[in-house]
Design a protein around this nucleic acid. Structure first.
Lengths: 226, 226
DNA sequence: CACAAAAAAATGGCATGCCATTTTCCGGGT
DNA sequence: ACCCGGAAAATGGCATGCCATTTTTTTGTG
């Protein structure tokens, strides 16, 4: 391997970003629960780096909305309430709807073919009951549409919101009827793609995302009550 | 004022955020031009703080998209190309359209009255040719709608994007016919508000923002050619 | 003079130490 | 037992210094 410094999407370039990636991961996976305190010196010892990169990483997480930093009082993992999921998905739905619109408008045969492939694979997983594979393909499809919209601003904004939205592992806990509905909505989107109907694609996708937000909100609500 | 915990407008919090605010201001005002290098030690001497808070501030600006930091090569003010304005406003338009929709859905007599007040004041300024006051009121109205949507995620996302969108002072350079069109679009929005027609409000506002983005793109293009 | 190599300067990344503020804990008074 | 006040510990904010990498300047050679 040559020492290519031209690979842009490198993570772990600087220590601070490496630390930020680790913390993001822990928060998303739930190893760090809401309201847990994050203590610079403790992390510093655990990760064997000094406090400086840790502090920089914490600033980044605060900008992402994953933690809250109070002056002279340190950092807390921010809460994730059901209602917040709804608010997040309200925005995410708008962004993905815009992406779906733009993708439809600039659709090429090649992109449509890739989408058909991904969609078909997802349907196979679904019909075969491979739930995990199904959810993975679902995510791949959503990301593919976002990536294909050719708007870096949208891509970055979406990614940042999804970091927060993905907190917890609730996605796999979905009622069967909602799952069927989601598959139907994906099929509707493909139909809009095939017809080149950008308006329809946008509406279908926005509805789909809003439903997802509502479902996640329900799951979170039931979990927090239990 | 409500005791909102998300009042970020507090000044003098931590030194790093203070520095970040100063730099944001300079970049937005154009004192720091695109591709200008930002040197930690120079700023450190100028602002009479150590390099540590400066570094933290730079990380924040990078997260905002205002600068680019390369490993071991320091920070550059990122460029602001016409096409980027278009991409930014594509996203901003979606967000403001969503805000307009939500505001309409939850409209109260009090909010409508405030909107009418602001709108009327803006019209007065416009008819009297007080261009600066007009633009200020314009901004106030846009912000008021965003703030009234009751979605902190949307508010924060919008604010972050607007920091980038407002770079330069091109807003005041607008062709008279576009200005008339903008006023008409504001009037259309008020009409949708009065009718409680959320769908119409959303569409009107999205169109308005997209037009604004196109206008700014044109201005930036003509400037960069000159 | 052109060009390349090497030295020097610039610059950023990180570790560490000191100080300010906050939090925790403990003892005395009621 | 309870509350209050102050000391001690915890914790974060910032300054400074050292090292690695990059950039610039200098120098040597054809």
């Amino acid at each position: 391997m040559s020492k290519g410094p031209d690979t842009k999407s490198e993570h772990a370039t600087t220590g601070a970003e490496h630390v930020a990636a680790i913390l993001r991961d822990r928060i998303v996976k739930g190893e760090l629960a809401p309201l847990d305190r994050i203590v610079e010196r403790r992390l510093s010892a655990e990760l064997m780096v000094s406090r400086t990169p840790i502090r920089e990483a914490l600033k980044l997480l605060e900008a992402d909305g994953l933690i809250e930093i109070n002056l002279h009082r340190g950092a807390l993992v921010s809460e994730y309430r059901p209602e917040e999921a709804l608010l997040l998905f309200d925005v995410i739905a708008s962004l993905e709807a815009l992406a779906a619109r733009r993708v439809t408008e600039t659709m090429t045969a090649d992109v449509l073919r890739q989408l058909e492939d991904l969609h078909g694979t997802m349907l196979d997983h679904h019909r075969a009951g491979r739930t995990n594979d199904y959810f993975d393909m679902n995510t791949v499809i959503h990301d593919f549409i976002i990536k294909s919209c050719a708007n870096p601003v949208l891509i970055a904004t979406h990614q940042r919101l999804m970091i927060r939205a993905r907190r917890g592992r609730f996605l796999a806990i979905m009622k069967p009827e909602r799952l069927e509905q989601a598959v139907t909505e994906h099929e509707d989107l493909m139909q809009a793609f095939r017809n080149g109907n950008a308006q329809q694609a946008s509406e279908v996708w926005e509805t789909h995302l809003r439903h997802t937000g509502e479902t996640i909100t329900e799951v979170l609500t039931s979990q927090s009550v239990s």
